[in-house]
Design a protein around this nucleic acid. Sequence first.
DNA 1: AATTTTTATGATCGTTCGGTCAGAAAAGAC
DNA 2: GTCTTTTCTGACCGAACGATCATAAAAATT
Lengths: 209, 209
Amino acid sequence: MPKTAKSPRTRIQKEKSGQILEAALEVFSNFGFRGSTLDQIAEAAGLSKPNLLYYFDSKEAIHSKLLEQLLETWLDPLRSMKAEGNAVEEIIGYVRRKLEMARDYPRESRLFANEILQGAPRIYGQISGPLKQLVDEKSAVIERWISAGSLARTDPHHLIFSIWAMTQHYADFDVQVQAVLGARADRRFEDALTFLSGLFRSALAPKVG
Amino acid sequence: MPKTAKSPRTRIQKEKSGQILEAALEVFSNFGFRGSTLDQIAEAAGLSKPNLLYYFDSKEAIHSKLLEQLLETWLDPLRSMKAEGNAVEEIIGYVRRKLEMARDYPRESRLFANEILQGAPRIYGQISGPLKQLVDEKSAVIERWISAGSLARTDPHHLIFSIWAMTQHYADFDVQVQAVLGARADRRFEDALTFLSGLFRSALAPKVG
DNA sequence: AATTTTTATGATCGTTCGGTCAGAAAAGAC
DNA sequence: GTCTTTTCTGACCGAACGATCATAAAAATT
């Protein structure tokens, strides 16, 4: 008897809870938590509503599980920014990976955006704890790059914010981006990478003197 | 008998519909459309639920009115970017005004973000019509600045996207920004302006050659 | 094949929600 | 002060929603 299923044990549990989470991601990311219904998720998953609730205790439980999984991988690109590398190239690389995530995992980005927009009621602890700590660490790395003269002077925290904002914009505001670009919309991610690389390269290249 | 009240006529209608819209902005921007209830809005407005519906036909009608009012003023900062001015300073000025709006009207920004995140179901026409047109016009201005050599070569559309993304980030993701900044959070808008000015100034200053 | 365990469902419950309505109260017109 | 119009409210309705439960079907175990 699952319910509060620690982790899927049987073959069927793996399959079904996977289907449910996939369907829930699709629905939650499009309509937000309150805007989504269990019936929608059940239909998208190809299961009956009571069967959904056989695998998860509640709507909340499904949502929490998704956020939990998301936070595991969400910060990988930032983690893999290494102090040993070339400063500008490490940051550009971070921008590129983050933009690829916006392109390849827009639903995860929108799920996150929805949660933060509502004031992060379910993940505030993760934000003010582990996330803040990681950002502080990486900001220190950036500070060292600046002191070493391999990066133009700038505010590390706000630099990271700006990278988040600009890359996630292409996932969260995709409808607007596509509508405004019109015919050029299909090249939006390539163009965005070109633009962002240029922007950060010229802004971050160490200034002489 | 109001209902589909074209525009408030009597003194009481002006007062009450104003209260309702103010309350609805507060509630909708925090919980999204589906996440908000008429009871919440009624309580925030200090009115009974049936009394709300005396002034507005439906929950949808309140929401639509808010979006309509929002779109009127939302694009003013972009409109006031003038081709006659100094290119870099015009763009920095636009960034500053947009950031001030994020600081002073965060609820409007979040209302807009919620709508776009859900796929802009109610304002897609405004996005693909008037908004696209305005962006195309201003992009042409930026192109001319580039041709004239007063701005570094860059993609005008994506430049505008990046300004939207970074400034609205400080409204829409404020919880995260504050949590990550910790003690420095109270200076976040000043620091953001300093950072963004520097970023765009060094990236947009025309390169020689 | 028999038995146990897991998986699935139809029916249904209690709440919440958007919205209605008849009529009361207040405001304005004369 | 009377009458008319506007404003407001308590009670209520139907639909949607999250969740439960008794029981049936399917899988796994022996």
